[in-house]
Simulated assay, not measured.
Amino acid sequence: MTDDNGGAGAVFAVFALLSVMAVGGGAAVLPETHALVVERHHWMTADAFRDAYGLGQVVPGPNMLMVMVIGHQVAGLAGALAAIAGFFGPSSAIAWGAGRLWNRFAGSPWRAAVERGLAPLVVGLMAAGTIAVARTAIDGAATVAIAVAVFAGVLGLRRLNPALLVLAAGVVGLGLGLGG
Rank of each mutant, 00 (worst) to 15 (best):
A112T: 07
A75L: 01
P62L: 08
A82C: 07
W102D: 03
Q57L: 14
L55D: 06
A95T: 01
R111K: 14
G129N: 06
D139I: 01
E115T: 10
R116C: 04
G140W: 01
P90N: 09
P62F: 03
A82Y: 00
A132P: 02
G76L: 00
I94A: 09
R116D: 14
G76M: 02
R111A: 08
I84E: 09
W110Y: 14
M64Y: 13
F88L: 12
R104V: 12
V59I: 15
A78V: 01
I131E: 02
M68H: 02
M126E: 08
G56S: 10
N63F: 13
V122Q: 11
G76T: 05
V59G: 04
I131F: 13
D139Y: 10
I84Y: 13
A142I: 07
L121N: 05
P62S: 08
T136Y: 10
A134W: 02
G129F: 02
G71A: 04
G89W: 04
A134I: 05
G107K: 08
G76R: 00
W96N: 10
Q73D: 09
I138C: 11
A137P: 00
A134V: 04
M68K: 02
A137I: 00
A112I: 03
L65W: 07
R111H: 06
I131V: 15
A141C: 03
A95P: 11
L65M: 14
W96P: 05
G89R: 02
F87S: 11
P62R: 02
P109M: 08
L101P: 12
G129R: 10
I94W: 04
G117F: 04
W96K: 05
A137H: 03
I84P: 06
A106V: 04
N103I: 06
V123P: 07
A83N: 04
R111F: 00
A112K: 10
V114G: 06
G117E: 04
D139Q: 14
G99V: 10
S91V: 15
A113M: 07
P60E: 05
A83Q: 05
W110S: 15
V67S: 05
L81P: 05
A142C: 08
A93H: 03
T136H: 12
A78K: 11
R104Q: 13
G117S: 06
V114R: 08
G71Y: 07
L77R: 09
T136I: 08
P120V: 02
